[in-house]
Design a binder for these strands. Structure first.
Lengths: 343, 343
DNA sequence: CGGGCGGCTGTTAGCGGTAACAATAGCGGA
DNA sequence: TCCGCTATTGTTACCGCTAACAGCCGCCCG
């Protein structure tokens, strides 16, 4: 009795199927498909033809197990709806594209426990490297990353201790710089409007740096307002209204991100409030969206694309090199736009 | 000579390390860690303790190869910067969270070749299912998906033939509906403003349905404008200005997405143009952003979250059941907002 | 004319788990 | 006391592929 026809549509194909179809050993097929080692032109073509006509798709699981090599890079970020992270991702994939490495994204929703779970899950696939947003992680997360024996890059933030490498900006300094610019422009009654997220450490550090700079000038926040959930643009509008009604003497509103800042700007314009004369405004991130607004909101570019690129480059570079932590600090530029009084 | 100390920080741990540390067989450790099969309480605790203290992270590659089961679901989408897809993703992960399945995202940038590569790459990891945006794929892509022997769900669109299952809306019908509403409101000189993307089939189908409905009413597009790249909000602004200058008699602007529609709305308001009296506006998608605008743009909800949920549910449900294609059509609701004249 | 070498292909032995089945122990009932 | 059954744990055989090495052949060179 002969073997069942190899065209059985049920069973998924293996190297053996291709090897039988092309009359060479599995090893040779493997070599052809990976383009590794010497194979004669004739054999190569016969194998490729067989693979193509069968519709063979290699099994990377088996391949990875045998070769102890996985072309995956884990990327752990808090959110996809923030616009900031998709842009970091662009930088990452752009750079990884040339290297044969591939990013795999995990989202934590700003939850440390979820982050721990995501990291565990990713490490269990034995990736070639990991890119993780932020420096704050659970004890277990740091331990896992440190033990993994692969390059780890923590991104976005450099105010703290990294497990291995880090690429980012100092949010503390960014907050400070913005405060200094605001004070220099003559504003004195300054309010902060932000998200209510205990785990958004970067926003926290910006606020901290901001308040430090205020203190150094003998000032303190005149008011503050937080929100969570909902449309950021709308929340920016609402919070702005609330703050201005509550504290009519406020002369500057510092937002923790551009989206709510844009909402505030639209509100002020609609109310006929003189910006930046009566009230000044500033956000953070430099999102593309701002370009379409009636007036350019003051902001600070967070170097997102560049952070993604540099992080990916570190992983790609270390591919089989030594593991040595390097910290790359980028410097955001303050874009004063039209919502801060000139000198 | 004794074995080197098992605390060697270089080598990554295996089941054997845990088994030796806890004095039971590898099989028992495997059972404990997967919570499968009967293990005595004492043994279980001993094993868990050993695993924890060693910092053992299972190797899913080996596990998947041995068990022929992979808890991954491939998700292939054209872009992350569109806001639409992150939302679909939310629906997917939300539903998958309960099932032990995990989404893995791949981005194609609206390129069919890139999509083919991404699908190939994903299938080579033998996922439990695939969710792919759109119905248009290369011949090879469709063949691979069909051959894979796993549930395939094509999302967003149902105007066409699916490989297996599909969940989405009819973009053709959506365009038609919007046109009918616009005509019913009395607008006659209608322009279209959209993206220049030959591979955005859904936008194309909307426009097609839109024009069909116009034709049925004896009308045709009075003008059209396309853009590519850049800030959508800004482009919406610029395109609107261009169209209104070129064709001053235009009385309605139909945008292919809400972002450029919002730009157009801001432009009109800034110019003091009477909306919806002199000019009516409509977009597509129902993005959250719109809530924060000074006036509510007419739009059509694309059921993004629901599409994600339903698609994930199909994959999860079929986990080990029969593979049978089902097509789920969702019906977007037209939200007239404040930018279409009332009856 | 023989050894050596390079080009090509095959063989063997896992990679680190898990399915399936075997083995062992402890216990109650006949 | 012996048997059978259940609860628990161990053994064996791969999963599909690749590293490492072995084998074969023809040709060049001394």
């Amino acid at each position: 009795m002969s073997r069942p026809p190899s065209h059985d549509p049920k069973r998924t194909l293996t190297l053996r199927d291709v090897s039988e179809a092309s009359g060479v050993s599995e090893m040779t097929v493997s070599r052809v498909l990976r383009n590794r080692g010497d194979v004669s032109v004739g054999t190569r073509e016969r194998v490729l033809e067989a693979a193509r006509s069968l519709g063979y798709v290699p099994n990377k699981i088996a391949g990875a197990l045998a070769s102890q090599r996985v072309n995956l890079v884990g990327v752990v970020i808090p959110s996809l709806s923030n616009m900031v992270f998709p842009e970091v991702l662009s930088g990452i994939s752009e750079t990884l594209d040339d290297t044969g490495l591939q990013p795999v994204v995990g989202v934590t929703n700003y939850s440390p426990e979820r982050e721990e779970a995501v990291i565990y899950e990713m490490l269990s696939w034995r990736p070639s490297g990991m890119i993780v947003a932020g420096l704050e992680h659970t004890e277990a997360s740091r331990a896992m990353l440190a033990q993994a024996g692969i390059p780890i890059v923590e991104i976005m933030d450099i105010d703290g201790a990294a497990v291995d490498s880090a690429v980012g900006i100092s949010h503390n300094r960014a907050g400070r710089q913005m405060a200094e610019a605001i004070i220099a422009a003559g504003y004195r009654r300054i309010a902060f409007l932000g998200t209510m997220m205990p785990h958004d450490h970067r926003a926290r550090k910006r606020l901290q740096g901001f308040e430090e700079a205020l203190a150094r000038a003998g000032l303190e926040l005149a008011d503050r307002e937080f929100y969570s959930g909902g449309s950021a643009l709308l929340k920016g509008r609402e919070m702005t209204e609330a703050v201005l009604k509550r504290s009519p003497d406020i002369d500057f509103l510092y937002y923790s991100n551009d989206m709510i800042g844009a909402g505030g700007l639209l509100y002020c314009l609609a109310q006929g409030i003189d910006v930046p004369g009566r009230v000044g405004l500033a956000g953070f991130n430099g999102v593309e969206l701002l370009d379409g607004l009636p007036r350019r909101l003051a902001t600070m570019d967070a170097c997102r694309l560049e952070i993604g690129r540099k992080a990916a480059a570190i992983i790609a570079g270390k591919h089989d090199g030594v593991i040595g932590g390097e910290v790359i600090e980028l410097f955001p530029t303050l874009e004063p736009g039209d919502t801060i009084r000139k000198g």
